[in-house]
């Protein structure tokens, strides 16, 4: 799976969680600027586990990995 494909899957999931249009989810915007709080963030982590079979809650994630959806897609691609 390419990073671009992962990015599209993430955008779809995040738009559902934040109840926004997919078109308005900017893959280069930081998560906190998308109006996501702790709970929303955990919902995204659960979505990632269910979709990509990756458990990230207890991993050593840094702010950089989650800086944007694009960064996260690249991080997931490296882990798959």
């Amino acid at each position: 799976m390419t990073a671009q494909e992962i990015e599209q899957i993430l955008i779809k999931g995040i738009s559902t969680i934040t109840n926004t249009d997919q078109a308005s989810v900017d893959p280069e915007k930081p998560f906190h600027d998308l109006g996501i709080d702790s709970l929303g963030f955990v919902e995204i982590l659960v979505y990632i586990e269910k979709t990509f079979k990756l458990q990230l809650i207890a991993s050593d994630l840094t702010k950089k990995d989650f800086e944007t959806i694009r960064n996260l897609a690249q991080f997931i691609q490296r882990k798959l």
Partner: peptide
């Protein structure tokens, strides 16, 4: 909160 709990983990 970021240093101790991680990104967007202020609630925990």
């Amino acid at each position: 909160a970021y240093q101790e709990a991680g990104y967007l983990m202020e609630s925990p």
